[in-house]
Design a binder for these strands. Sequence first.
DNA 1: CGCTCTCTTGAAGGTACTCAATACTAGTGG
DNA 2: CCACTAGTATTGAGTACCTTCAAGAGAGCG
Lengths: 251, 251
Amino acid sequence: MKDVEDLAAAPAVAPPPPPYRPSIFAAPFQKVGDGHAVELLSVAEQEALIAISQLVSMRRHTLIYSEGSEARFVYNVVSGVAETSQLLPNGDRHITAFLFARDLLGLSVDGRYVATARTLTPIVAYRIPVDALEAILERDPRLDIGLLCKLCHELRASQHHAITVSKHEAHARVANFLLWLEGVHVQPAGVAGELTLPMSRHDVADYIGLSVESVSRALHVLEDKGAVLRKGPRTIELLDAAKLRKLAGQI
Amino acid sequence: MKDVEDLAAAPAVAPPPPPYRPSIFAAPFQKVGDGHAVELLSVAEQEALIAISQLVSMRRHTLIYSEGSEARFVYNVVSGVAETSQLLPNGDRHITAFLFARDLLGLSVDGRYVATARTLTPIVAYRIPVDALEAILERDPRLDIGLLCKLCHELRASQHHAITVSKHEAHARVANFLLWLEGVHVQPAGVAGELTLPMSRHDVADYIGLSVESVSRALHVLEDKGAVLRKGPRTIELLDAAKLRKLAGQI
DNA sequence: CGCTCTCTTGAAGGTACTCAATACTAGTGG
DNA sequence: CCACTAGTATTGAGTACCTTCAAGAGAGCG
């Protein structure tokens, strides 16, 4: 696994803008809209970001950046799935987030990345230099507000994740995870109600705080109760969403 | 317990600015400083916030706002401790955050508060109308960046919380909680190494995802191992910080 | 000073974890 | 195209931990 930032001299540059544009998607905190996520970047802001960014593509299972290394870029995912993780002192790995199209990654503190990021699928993303971004932020208050919304959105997701992970039995956590994934992950042209998992059982386990075996057993339970059907390790059909919600503790 | 926003006609207005000023405290994401939290508001920004805000004080165990109600204010805590919580469908209560001086509360989505907030101690805070705040944000990019830093800080805290809560045994969670509290909660003039808990066992349990009894037992374990000493239900002396860190899994 | 609420402690039961072995998938090379 | 292989996923048995239910001790408030 190679760190793409080390390849700065010869990055894999994807084709020009047309099909892809920078995009930030989140629910605004203002009382406009119906509470659903909307595009937060104006065309002008997209243009400004395109001007300072580079569209890069990476293969699956590629290290994007490492925890603790100098944070020079922020990434805006165009397509594909990535994950951010942190290594705990005892050797356990905790996945802090899965990131999809229209998400941002590259959170840093004191100029250093707080997590390790890697791709789970082939990915296309805008790579935005932080110093150039900061220069834009100084001048464009509307862009700042868009980012504020996105961060609020992320914060809320993280709090929701903490809830999922703290209470609930194993099968409830997995049920919650499947429902969440169905909502956020745009499926690659498949059968309706069929969920394609871009991550391994190990990733799922490290995300919801269970052992790999428990995830497997939990899926078995959900299948036994008729809520889902395992069609393959990475393919799960949601048979009964209502039942799944009930098993997830969402009553 | 009364909702202070319903008392808008006659709020408890605290004395003029001198001793208290709006303050936002967080670690910036830029590579300046030593990685520690710093004040993010300039004097001019503090003045601007004072101009649109009202300094309010509330008694202990007072409802500040309810989940789902219209989000008209953001609060900047000056002194005291508050908590935000969410009620789960199954009746469990999950505490999303404890908030101290220099923290912000009032996160909303689509104009509605996402959690219920209540005071744990007597509290003094700036109550900032969101519409007036948005007007300032439109014009002051630097303030936006301050808020971005604060949100990053919160997001990181929330992710750390999710980690604490997902892995780890009961005594490790409690040890982590005590160490975290020592770091963020300015102690009310007490003995060095002595921790005053502003929240009940029930609150702690709902925060770290354990039962009240398990929290109690975990404290017993930490005491048995010589890491802490319970001097009272709300007073805990940290005898051996290194040992506590080891028990917390921070090695 | 007594009451109530909070906190602690005890015992039984259930759930997830660890260790271990087997089945399967997918990627590789012949 | 097929066989092989390494990694991934599932299943089983035993153990350790947390939760629940229950009762008692302590603190704080009127």
